[in-house]
């Protein structure tokens, strides 16, 4: 009788050990199956930084490049456009860029490293539509000083991508990580090393 008791104890231990080791195996087997579903190497490559030459951009000109499959806008703002930013605070929902929609170095009055060069992710923070660049004053309404307008649901952003009050978009447009390689070259997708 006593020998059978020992046997049952041993069996219980063995079956618990087997279950535990088997569970480790199942988790191990899940690793390749789940990693397979993550973006492939090609997607990782497209996540790499993009170099943009801005030497030939004129004042007020806007240009779009692709980074991680998203449109990135680069705008060379004129002095007038930069000045227009200061008068709008009362109409904006987050004039000081308190919500983290930008790297630390772009959390300033211009939301950019250099006042004249604006870099934004061109995706509306409401539902992901692509807003359009509308620099001409009065083109959207009488008081429009120039900015970005999303025709999907009527969201309005100023010349620094800050969102107006009373529109569907909840936050300012996102600023991607970027830095200047030199005077005329921007690297989008990477902070300065």
């Amino acid at each position: 009788m006593s020998s059978e008791d020992v046997d049952l104890k041993k069996r219980k231990f063995l079956s618990q050990a087997t279950t535990a080791i088997g569970a480790v195996g199942v988790c191990g087997a899940a690793v390749p199956l789940i990693s397979y579903l993550t973006p492939g190497r090609e997607a990782q490559m497209s996540a790499k930084a993009v170099e943009v030459d801005i030497a030939d951009m004129k004042e007020g000109e806007q240009r779009t490049v692709v980074w991680r499959g998203k449109p990135i806008w680069i705008v060379r703002r004129s002095v007038a456009q930069v000045d227009s930013l200061k008068k709008l605070d009362a109409q904006l929902s987050d004039p000081n860029s308190a919500i983290e929609q930008q790297p630390g170095y772009a959390q300033n009055a211009y939301r950019s490293i250099r006042p004249d060069i604006l870099v934004l992710v061109g995706v509306c923070t409401h539902l992901g539509c692509a807003p359009t660049y509308r620099p001409e004053p009065q083109s959207i309404d009488e008081t429009w000083p120039g900015g970005f307008f999303c025709s999907c649901h009527g969201s309005k952003f100023d010349m620094a991508g800050r969102v107006y009050k009373g529109v569907p978009a909840p936050t300012n447009l996102e600023v991607p990580p970027y830095h200047f390689l030199n005077e005329d070259t921007i690297v989008v997708g990477k902070d300065r090393a």
Binding site: P32, L33, Y36, T38, G40, R41, E42
Partner: peptide, 13 residues
Amino acid sequence: EYLMRDIPFGWLL
């Protein structure tokens, strides 16, 4: 060939 080389663990599957 793409899934075997550029997708994580594609070769294994």
